[in-house]
Design a protein around this nucleic acid. Structure first.
Lengths: 109, 109
DNA sequence: CTTTCATTTCAATGTTTCTTGAAATATTGG
DNA sequence: CCAATATTTCAAGAAACATTGAAATGAAAG
């Protein structure tokens, strides 16, 4: 992960509507959601949503697959892991106790 | 963590210079770094750096303490952990295998 | 093959965010 | 107290980003 890549991913997430979209996709899991249902869920105009989804995809955080006349969006959790790893790189140089807060990062599973 | 808070933290990180600053502070550990040395490290004009540090601090990602005529900046790793936890909330509703990528998040320690 | 539905593209506008340099503040050392 | 150092504040212009509505694309059902 390079600095510009990481910044692009953070920029993509750094927007309230896109954050909502992203979290809805996380909750939807690998099956993902079609754009239309996302538009309802986050209450964003379709054209606006489309732009937001393009930003997320361009940053490498989401994937799309066509399905009938829909397009189904889902998140790339490995991209998220890569981003977070980059953020806290070198967090504890020989002092594990320093990054103890980060061991709580693991999600509810 | 609320959505606006999370978005503010992501916005704060979503800038190449601020990302450099942040990572330099992560690497510096709890001791932190004075603004002056950060300015050299990331090659940003002092006034500009000051604005960036204010953004990070306002988002709750960094802390400052005065030390002589310096001001020493450091990161708040718990804030980072909170942000990441928020991002991947509900990632695996009963299907632990779904969020396997996230178990690699843990840093080098 | 025509209509309908889902989504994207485009162009214009408005809003936020960055950057810069100069001036202000605050702290120490002489 | 005065000078020097470290950092922040301020105001202005420049740049990037978000939003809107209308029009275009593309896929599928009748």
């Amino acid at each position: 992960m390079t600095e510009p890549e990481a910044a692009a991913r953070l920029s993509a997430l750094a927007h309230e509507a896109r954050l909502k979209i992203f979290r809805a996709l996380v909750a939807a899991g690998p099956e993902g959601l079609p754009a239309g249902r996302l538009a309802e869920a986050v209450e964003v105009a379709p054209s606006n949503l489309s732009a937001h989804l393009a930003v997320l995809a361009h940053a490498g955080l989401t994937r799309v697959r066509p399905e009938g006349r829909h397009r189904i969006w889902s998140v790339d959790l490995e991209a998220v892991a890569g981003l977070v790893g980059f953020l806290v790189d070198d967090c504890c140089q020989g002092r594990p106790e320093v990054c103890a807060p980060l061991t709580a990062i693991r999600p509810s599973c």
